[in-house]
């Protein structure tokens, strides 16, 4: 038995098993790579080789038509998780100097009661992206746009690094005992609203999502309404517009006051 050759045409087990396996493989390949794609008229395949390439998943060049361009500017910032997370003391120092011109609205310590965003402790990537969007025109503000227009890329990084370095300060309306609204914790799956907390920090933080704790409720509400109405559209892939459009006015109000009360 053990001297019987295994890999030999004289061994019927070898011939039959290899033959059957190969036959099934070839038949399924012919059916899957040639016959089935050719049987689908909407694929518009010119030849057998075309069918094989299509079924094998070889990427085809997209049809060269002029893409529909939006009639407004979109953000050109590419967000990644590591973006501007490395602390650079020189950059923070430069940013501190540059930020003096921001203090009138955003406060000397990055916190103010002017209903402008509190920037102390904000993620650097977030501040940088907004500055960049103001500069390119993806986000428009009569106050911010002229400031950003004069800033270089390095200036924006420095200012962002400085504000990220400042400690977060709770707002005057701090109330940690306040129950989180349902939309913050669970979202509303049937309206395609993910939980706010899954990006904005309570549950997890995702690249590019600002820290909302202690922000002015007036500001949060204004931004959600701007996203919903489409007057603000620098969110990448309409992430916030799709959410804000689905939110009720009551939910927007609840969320704004909840986050203002958070540290």
């Amino acid at each position: 038995m053990s001297d019987q050759p295994l890999f030999s045409p004289r061994n019927p087990w070898f011939g039959i098993s290899v033959g059957v396996t190969a036959a099934i493989a070839v038949l399924s390949a012919v059916a899957g790579l040639i016959w089935l794609p050719l049987a689908q008229p909407n694929l518009k395949l010119a030849s057998v080789w075309d069918a094989i390439c299509s079924a094998a998943g070889v990427p085809r060049a997209a049809v060269q038509e002029a893409a529909v361009k939006p009639d407004f500017k979109t953000s050109n910032v590419v967000m990644t998780s590591e973006m501007l997370t490395k602390v650079d003391q020189v950059s923070i120092g430069r940013g501190a100097t540059l930020a003096q011109r921001c203090a009138i609205c955003h406060g000397p310590q990055g916190v103010s009661d002017a209903h402008s965003p509190n920037l102390a402790g904000q993620f650097a990537a977030v501040t940088y992206k907004e500055l960049n969007d103001f500069k390119t025109g993806a986000r428009v503000s009569v106050v911010m746009s002229p400031f950003a227009a004069a800033m270089s890329d390095q200036d924006m990084k420095d200012v962002a690094a400085y504000y990220a370095y400042l400690p977060r300060v709770p707002s005057n309306n701090l109330d940690t005992g306040r129950a989180a609204p349902a939309v913050v914790v669970t979202g509303a799956p049937l309206r395609n609203i993910p939980p706010c907390g899954s990006c904005h920090g309570d549950i997890d933080n995702k690249a590019g999502s600002p820290w909302l704790g202690g922000q002015s409720a007036v500001y949060i509400k204004a931004q959600l309404e701007a996203f919903a109405s489409g007057t603000r559209r620098n969110d990448i892939s309409q992430q916030m517009r799709n959410i804000a459009r689905q939110m009720t006015a009551e939910e927007i109000d609840q969320v704004a006051h909840y986050y203002e009360a958070q540290p």
Binding site: I24, A25, S28, A29, A31, G32, L33, L36, P37, I52, S54, A55, A56, G57, V58
Partner: peptide, 17 residues
Amino acid sequence: PQVGAGFKFMHSVFTGL
């Protein structure tokens, strides 16, 4: 989307086996 339909079919056949 990253695997071609033909290979999906082949895997389907062998899954049946």
